[in-house]
Each structure stands twice: as structure tokens, then as C-alpha cells.
Design a binder for these strands. Structure first.
Lengths: 257, 257
DNA sequence: CGCCAGGTTGAAGTTCCTCAAAATTTGTGG
DNA sequence: CCACAAATTTTGAGGAACTTCAACCTGGCG
């Protein structure tokens, strides 16, 4: 497994069909589905329009009707909802290889907002192309369906976190999950770029003050190291704190667990 | 829209293929997908093995590999996870017409537990039969995929509830959701059978004491009425308390919202 | 060099939890 | 149909976890 495609040319707003655009998607799908050479080729020829986003840029909004899906090539995206009184809740965090709005293929009206939480590079894939892919190859359709199901499993685990874990456990769990998901696409070898503490707070249903104190404690115990927003973690010990078991990420194609 | 099928004969553990078994499923799918007469027929002939469950009966467990899906005909089911220290979190609540473990079609290893929270009648449908249905008819495959996506949307809304709403708002939101989802399959005309307050607590990430006090307050304000575990609600006022907007349930096939 | 988003810390306040005991309802066997 | 046991609901009191408010610090960047 090679390094991230972060060294690819800055392609800006141009249409391109090189294999590197869907590289992350292929890495991701390979974790939950065995893909034939023919299927790999089918994925590589998907039309992808790459663009860069800033740090806190909204991609799509609740109520929008969309006609394409977004594939993350680099960076982190998040779903969120706002409350009447201005509170924000992040519903999911997405890493490279994820298609955060894959559900729009069958539910084109967005029921939440989507934004970048660190600078990102994303690719737009027309629904038309994805629908055609699914028609051509039912196994790929099933693979994409499976991706949406795994994402549902991740969301359910968040419900468990928010409902029954302490602040300390929640933060530890979130960091473990982030690490393992990045690792699955080969991006955990170097320190991990973090979102702001306010974003972590919005994700874990806490105040940013509480996030700050919790990170301080984890740092002082040597469970994590943070330097200029880049983090390294002591996975085994952090896993123990959160009681983190990656089974729910369904990353093993052998057991299709 | 006619009454619930609760007057059907107590069929026990026998295999049956009468149309009434999948009646609830058809009602449910019709809310998010337009079905042709041919597709209705295809659904009616699914093999369904009906059985009754008690009030707190586990249907399947984390780690189980399953080869069939469960269709709820009557009653309520719930997904849940337990914490190391014995706390329980309910991840989803299911109503008649739902297939709580539809994800097992592509992720056969359960990543959570499934149990009944009131006495229920459920039907088992072999994965084989559902997979064949999907192969025969891609539109039905898409309809089932869409069901799993809607369920994901519901789970995300729970994340928002647990992360950013007060106890009062959470309880109000849960009751609104339960009402509207039951209404969608024609079961909201009469008082709604409730789960225990401990179950509500486990669903909303609260203690049962807090649930009790919250229900007392809602009752004293006339927002809900509870008699022997059966509830009626003042939907408009409760909706206002929770800021409940049913868009996320995607119950309107016109907008496919 | 100074601005500004984001991080850090203290102190006070709130919401919800835990513990405990009593009241009520439900289920079950006689 | 009743009586008893078990489950569930209800209420009070005290405490823990987290929020809010407010001030100050830090580092990246024009």
C-alpha cells in the first residue's frame, strides 16, 4: 500500500479521469469488498471533477437537491445540523476515500449540511455516472450499498458514545476511530491533522472547554501528543480508555464483519 | 388506509405466504417509493415465517452471523449496545413495516444487539429470498437500499438529539418521531403502546429518573396523556417543544425528500 | 508588528445522575 | 377472580459532570 496521493499535481477545477482521482475510493472499497481487475477499471474511469476547499467551507446545505456525489481525496469533511439557539452538532466525520453524500444517490434532498473541517481536496462524481456504474455491475452497486451501511454502523456507535460515555471516553473513542479509519486508507503513518477543538466539541456533544481539558489530561498522561494541530496517539492505551473495538467499522473483507 | 393487521389469526411458528404478512412492509416502502402492481406482487410472495416475541426478548446479538432479515408486523423492536460498566444504549427504535436488520443482507455479522421492547410479532425473511428479489428487480433493490438510507438519516437525527438537546427536548422529539413513524403505517389512530421508562432512558441517553420527571412535566402541561402505558399526544405543541421537522424521515415519495 | 482565530485556565452555575424508599401496576399461579 | 411477587413508576435529597462566562495566552499571517 503506497503513500497518500497528496503529491499529485494541483489540478484545480479541471475534469480529469486519471486513475489517481479514485485511488482513495478504491482503497476504501477494497477494505469491505474484494474487487476484480475489471471492477477496478470500472471505478478508475469514473468521471471526477476535483476541487480544493478551504478550512470551513460549506459543500451542501439541508434542503439542497444535489445531482452528484463528493469523493474526499484529502482532508476531513463533516455533516452537521444547527439548533434553533445556534448550537451545532456534527453528525459524522469523513476521511479520504469516503463519499459523504452517497445517500443522495437515492435521497437527493439533503437532510443535513456538509462542510470541510480542515482544508480538503474533493472530487465531484455525477449521480448519472454512479447510477450507470450500479446498473452495469450489481456487485459494485452492492459494494456502494455496503459503504452506506458501514457508515450507518459508525453513526450508531456515535449514538452510543454520546448517550453513555464520559467526556474522557468519548474523546478517546473519537480519536481511535479517526486513527483507524485513516489507517485503513494508508494515512496513519504520519501525525494526523486535527480539526479545531470547537469542531471536536460539536462532534462529541460537549463544550470546547471540556474538550480542551480532556485533551490536556490525555496529553499529560502520554496517551496523545499534539504539536501544531498534528496528533500522534498511543493506540493501545487510548483504545483501553475508550473500550474501542474496531469491529463496527467492518474493515475486514474476510469476515465481511 | 385501513387498520392494523392486529386482528389476523395467531399463526404461531408456521410458514405462510398470505399477502397480509408483508402488508406492513408494503405500506412502509410505498412512503418512499412508488411501487408498480408487479412489484407489489413480488413483495407479497416473499416467504415470511411469522413468530411472536415477549416483551424483552433478544432477537440477535453482536457478533452473530445471520442468514435472514426480520420484518416487524406488530410491536416495537430496538437495537442496543452495552457498556463495560453495565449501561445500555438503545441505538434505534423500530416500528411495524421496518426491517431492523436489513443491513445484514450485506453485513451479515451483527455489530449490535436487537430485541423487542414491547410484545411483538415479527416475520423472518431469508437473505436468499431478498437477494433474489433484488436481482430480479433493481428498482426494489433501490427501494430497500433507500430504506437503509432513511434509517441512517434517523440515526443521525438521534446524534443531534443526544448531543445538543435538553432532556425535555429529547423526550419530546422521540415521542414526535414515534408518532409520525407509526402514523406512516396507519397505526397512530389509537393510543400508542409505550416501552418502559427505562427503555426511553436508554434510548435518549438519560436516567430513568430524569425520563420520569420529564414525562410528568409534559403530562402536567397537557402535551401528552399516558394511561396504562398507552399514550396520546398533542403533536403540534410537542413538535414545537422539540423543534421537530419530519423532513429527515423522508416519508414523501413525491419529493423523494 | 499587530491582528485574530483558536487554545488555555479559573470560577460559578446548571443539568442531570445516583442513591434510596415508597407507591403503583403488571404478571402469574392457585 | 384473587393474592402475591416482580417489575415499573414516582418522589426526595445530595452530589458529580459538564456548561457558561470571562479573562488571558499563543501562534500563524498579512
Amino acid at each position: 500500500m503506497q503513500k497518500a496521493a497528496s503529491s499529485s499535481p494541483e489540478s484545480g477545477n479541471v475534469m480529469s479521469q486519471t486513475s489517481s482521482q479514485t485511488d482513495m475510493l478504491i482503497r476504501r472499497l477494497s477494505k469491505s469488498t474484494r474487487l476484480s481487475e475489471h471492477e477496478l477499471q470500472d471505478l478508475r474511469t469514473l468521471p471526477v471533477t476535483i476541487r480544493e476547499t478551504g478550512k470551513n467551507e460549506t459543500i451542501s446545505r439541508e434542503g439542497d437537491r444535489v445531482d452528484h456525489c463528493i469523493l474526499i481525496v484529502e482532508g476531513l469533511l463533516a455533516r452537521f445540523l444547527d439548533t434553533r439557539d445556534g448550537k451545532r452538532q456534527i453528525l459524522s466525520i469523513f476521511v479520504p476515500g469516503d463519499i459523504p453524500d452517497l445517500q443522495s444517490l437515492h435521497l437527493p434532498t439533503m437532510d443535513h449540511n456538509l462542510c470541510s473541517i480542515v482544508p480538503a481536496r474533493v472530487g465531484a462524481i455525477p449521480h448519472r455516472a454512479l447510477a450507470a456504474l450500479c446498473d452495469r455491475n450489481p456487485r459494485l452497486a452492492a459494494a456502494l450499498w455496503r459503504e452506506t451501511l458501514i457508515e450507518g454502523s459508525v453513526t450508531r456507535r456515535w449514538v452510543h458514545c454520546l448517550g453513555r460515555l464520559t467526556a474522557r471516553q468519548r474523546v478517546a473513542h473519537m480519536l481511535c476511530e479517526l486513527y483507524v479509519r485513516l489507517d485503513a486508507v494508508g494515512l496513519a503513518g504520519e501525525p494526523i491533522r486535527l480539526m479545531t477543538q470547537q469542531d471536536m466539541a460539536d462532534a462529541m456533544g460537549l463544550s470546547f472547554v471540556q474538550i480542551n481539558r480532556t485533551l490536556r489530561d490525555l496529553r499529560s498522561e502520554g496517551l496523545i501528543t499534539i504539536e501544531r494541530r498534528y496528533m500522534t496517539i498511543d493506540l493501545p492505551r487510548l483504545q483501553e480508555v475508550a473500550n474501542f473495538d474496531p469491529l463496527y467499522l467492518h474493515l475486514d473483507p474476510e469476515t465481511r464483519g
